[in-house]
Amino acid sequence: MDMEIEEIRGTFKPEIIPKETGGDIEDYEEALHVLMKFVGSMSSALEQVSGRGANAIVYQAGKRMGHDAAKMMEKTDDLEQALNEMGEVLGVEFYFEMWKPAGQEGYTIEKGNETVVKVLFMDCVVRQTLRRTGLPQKGPLCYLLYGYMVGAVEEVMSIKGKLDIDHVGPNACLKTLTIKWGGK
């Protein structure tokens, strides 16, 4: 395969707010693929070295990201409102919606001191990374989202939460978010 590497030559001065990235869309694409391969390799190496501990490490990283991302969000006791806000923060690369079977009335189900909601992740960078590197879903990298959601929920609602993977597919993944009322 012919590879042409173009060197960029010019003058560079220190700048307070950089305006140019020095690359075009193809450079971004190239960088994204390298990053996907890099993250995929890291994930499988982590699993090889740490076994099931890999899930906990990635979960913790996701949780930290979730707490950080949700710091700017408005605090609420309403799970549906929290999820809508989180959707905006997670953005288009983790595009999700609440989901319910056709016969169910509302999105949330109350079970004692727990509230349960099904969340359908449609666009997911993690899934794309796994497919890029040929890794199975439900592995350590999926725990990044698990941690992210739990971290964000804990930050916004100040309560404990957990996210279980119900089903994974190439186009969408269904997860159950459970929050437990009654403090941290």
Partner: peptide, 16 residues
């Protein structure tokens, strides 16, 4: 349906 983005596709490989 919502068709998820497929940024993982390597277009150079597909061209080949």
């Amino acid at each position: 349906i919502h068709v998820a983005k497929r940024l993982y596709i390597d277009r150079k490989v597909n061209d080949v």
